[in-house]
Design a binder for these strands. Structure first.
Lengths: 228, 228
DNA sequence: AAATACAATATCGTATAGGATCCGATATAG
DNA sequence: CTATATCGGATCCTATACGATATTGTATTT
């Protein structure tokens, strides 16, 4: 039984990690992988049985996800996965990104250190390692995750934690992934990331600003086809 | 007493509002009014007794508040109110506001309608009605709430819901209120709001942009004294 | 006298049970 | 044949109980 194994692990390794975190990650992964489709209902007891835990941590994890906009809750009806992005939501988010991310890139150049640049290079390099023969789902998923990590690394260097957490809470990469799922993944982003890195190496704030603006704009235009 | 009225309403009108929402508002109000001081521990069972409900809704409300950054949670230790803003957090947030809010004001002018402008005028007028002889706490609280509503109205007109929810989640007015509590409240903001309205009436996007930039900058400079 | 070890208490985290509400199916009336 | 009302099942929401862990106070030892 799952509970036995769970209890066994907890007793042996005595790690102080909470069950809620694990549940959160599990649901997040199911949303990301479209195992839970956009708009689909999420039944608490079903999840509790499948994950082998009680309903309380499920409820708490869903509450966090609701606050992040990934699931919706209707009182006395239940939870459901957030619907697919509308075109307006998409455009609003990209307008927001264009407002914030180029400036963050500019700040990142100003605060750049050799170590930070090196870390950024490795982060970008991780996206190149395709490991192609995996299935399509995990391949896209890995791409989205690496892209998110790259952008987050830039924001971390920029130093403004408010901006960083704000963008992190938007879960851009998850929504993009849900849009991209039935489309073909493009490798153009890799090239644009390379342009970004070049700007960071040059140490010119305005160059980074422009490179990021172009990158976000092109990302927007690429994904816009999903709404036709 | 508020709790009695709460229970009365629940028993008589049997409205389908959830207990969690009421608990959330209650805790929020206690944080706002400094009844729960920054950094103070928040004991679940104490709250459950005081609010007359079980621990489960308390837990869920605290989970939402944690996601909004208003309370912190340490595993196997408990919840506590978020500490007072550090100077860095303050500066980061105002840098973010300066990045976003002037642009939002510009957008608001572009999308402005006569009805929206009228609504904005009344919202601004609400801040003038001092009703002075109330105690200091509720007076500041009302000021902060009206200010938040005014800014939110502008963002609503601007039309970008991502930006709106993002700023709303920062709970700027609550944190400002916690800073202002031991300071004197200034009426300069009213004058700046009037300048903003003038810009909105003029219909010139750039004027609104500049007015909002000046307003946010001055707000920052006024509050900066709290860190000395 | 100070520091460490141990024990007791308090609090958190999780699980389970019961009450209330909503959704869907069936039967009946028009 | 359609529409409405009623009944049953399922699900959510709340409450309570139990086990695990951290904190605190006391006693003992150096």
């Amino acid at each position: 039984m799952a509970e036995a194994a769970e209890r066994e692990a907890k007793a042996s390794s005595l790690r102080p990690t909470s069950v809620v975190d694990g549940v959160y990650d599990g649901i997040y992964h199911r949303l990301m992988s479209l195992d839970i489709a956009p708009g689909a209902r999420i039944r608490i007891d079903v999840l509790a049985r499948e994950l082998g835990v009680s309903q309380t941590p499920i409820r708490e994890a869903l509450s966090r996800l609701e606050r992040e906009g990934l699931v919706r809750k209707e009182h006395l009806i239940g939870y459901s996965a957030a619907p697919q992005w509308t075109r307006k939501q998409f455009e609003d988010l990209y307008a927001f990104r264009l407002l914030v991310e180029p400036e963050a890139a500019r700040l990142a150049v100003i605060n750049m250190t050799p170590e930070a640049l090196a870390e950024l290079e490795t982060s970008a390099a991780d996206m190149g390692h395709g490991d192609p023969p995996v299935d399509r789902n995990t391949r896209y998923s890995r791409f989205a995750r690496a892209d998110a990590q790259f952008h987050d690394a830039i924001l971390k260097i920029a130093g403004n934690e408010i901006i960083r957490s704000t963008l992190s809470n938007q879960h851009v990469h998850l929504h993009i992934f849900r849009l991209m799922f039935h489309t073909r993944v493009t490798q153009e982003a890799l090239e644009e990331h390379e342009n970004l890195l070049a700007a960071f190496r040059s140490g010119e704030p305005q160059a980074a600003y422009d490179a990021m603006r172009i990158h976000v704009e092109r990302s927007r235009d690429r994904l816009l086809s999903a709404f036709e």
